[in-house]
Amino acid sequence: MPWPMVHFAIASNLFEGEPSPDFLIGSIGPDAIHVRGEISREEKGTTHLVSNGKLPQKDVILHNCKDYFSMWPDMKWKDFVLGYFSHIYADLRWTDTIYADFERAYEGDQEHIRNTYTVEVSQLEFLLMKSMENTEGILTSLKIAKGFSIDPFVTRQEVEQYRNEKISWLRDGQNEPNITPIYFPIEKVQHFIDQTSIELKELCTNWRGRV
């Protein structure tokens, strides 16, 4: 799955460099379950609408997004919901493209594939931070976001705690591996961000009206 900066970069594209705080915090909402500590794949899958070990297809994501979107007229809630389900859609596209390419190209020991992924996408987070002109604005906007509970997936407290942890991690330069990614070059990932943004823009416009 892509890490936060990929989701933030998509959000930035969708909103022409100025995504709302509510969309931003929603865009990492499904991963807030990690604040519970050690969780199983099944538990994480619940917040991502995973069924039979697979992420939901586009129509399932759209159906759930529409249902939650209509629950409350407040625009902050609606932006949060759009961010939440945009995250799931981006995860689906990443799994089918970028990650699938990684699994095919990986030449190392299979026991180390997860570690290789973690190191490379960690580096990618910092490369995106440095390449995006509005990184500071995004992190500042994210910091002031209040978040929401989205039943039965995650609570507002979990979403905000996860947000705080991710900001802290991103602002700590010691977390940068200082490597050149082999499997996740920034050019390839940027193409993914641009393409996924195009797909999501059409979907989001149908509901939000001003994306």
Score class of each variant (00 low, 15 high):
C65P: 09
E125K: 00
L55G: 03
V50W: 11
R114C: 03
D101A: 12
R114G: 06
G83K: 05
F69S: 03
Y99E: 05
H112L: 02
R104E: 15
Q110M: 09
V119Q: 10
V81H: 04
D59P: 10
Y84W: 11
L92Q: 14
Y99Q: 08
D109Q: 10
F69Q: 04
D109L: 12
V119E: 12
L128H: 11
P73S: 08
E125L: 02
E125A: 04
T47Q: 05
I88P: 04
S86P: 06
Y68F: 12
W94A: 00
R93L: 15
H63K: 13
D74C: 02
D96S: 09
E103G: 13
L62R: 05
V50C: 09
L49M: 02
F102C: 10
I98F: 04
F126S: 10
Y68L: 11
Q110L: 14
D101Q: 13
L92T: 15
Q123V: 09
E120Y: 03
A90T: 12
H87L: 02
F69T: 01
I113K: 15
D67Y: 02
Y84C: 09
L62Q: 00
K54A: 05
S70R: 08
I88N: 01
I61P: 00
W94V: 03
K76S: 14
V60M: 11
L49V: 01
E120G: 03
Y106F: 14
N52I: 02
V50Q: 15
L92D: 12
F69I: 04
W72N: 08
K78P: 00
K78Y: 08
Q57T: 15
A100E: 01
T116L: 09
L82V: 00
V121Y: 02
T118I: 07
A100V: 04
H112M: 09
E103V: 10
E111M: 13
Y68E: 14
S70M: 07
D67I: 08
V119M: 12
D91T: 03
E111Y: 03
Y89S: 11
Y106G: 07
N64S: 09
V81W: 06
Y89C: 01
F69W: 10
V50E: 15
R93Y: 13
T47H: 07
V60G: 04
I113W: 06
P73F: 01
H63M: 11
L55T: 00
R93E: 12
N115M: 07
L82I: 01
F102W: 02
H112R: 11
S70N: 13
N64E: 15
D67N: 04
R114S: 04
A105L: 05
I98W: 05
W72G: 00
D79K: 07
S122G: 03
G83A: 14
C65F: 09
K54T: 01
Y68P: 13
M129N: 05
A105Q: 06
K76M: 10
F85A: 03
V121G: 05
V121N: 06
E125S: 03
K54G: 00
F69E: 11
L55P: 00
F126G: 08
G83W: 08
Q57E: 13
A100S: 13
T46S: 11
Y84G: 12
M75N: 14
Q110S: 09
W72H: 09
L62K: 04
W94H: 00
P56I: 12
K78N: 10
T118H: 02
D101R: 14
F102G: 07
F85Q: 01
Y68A: 13
V119G: 01
Y89E: 10
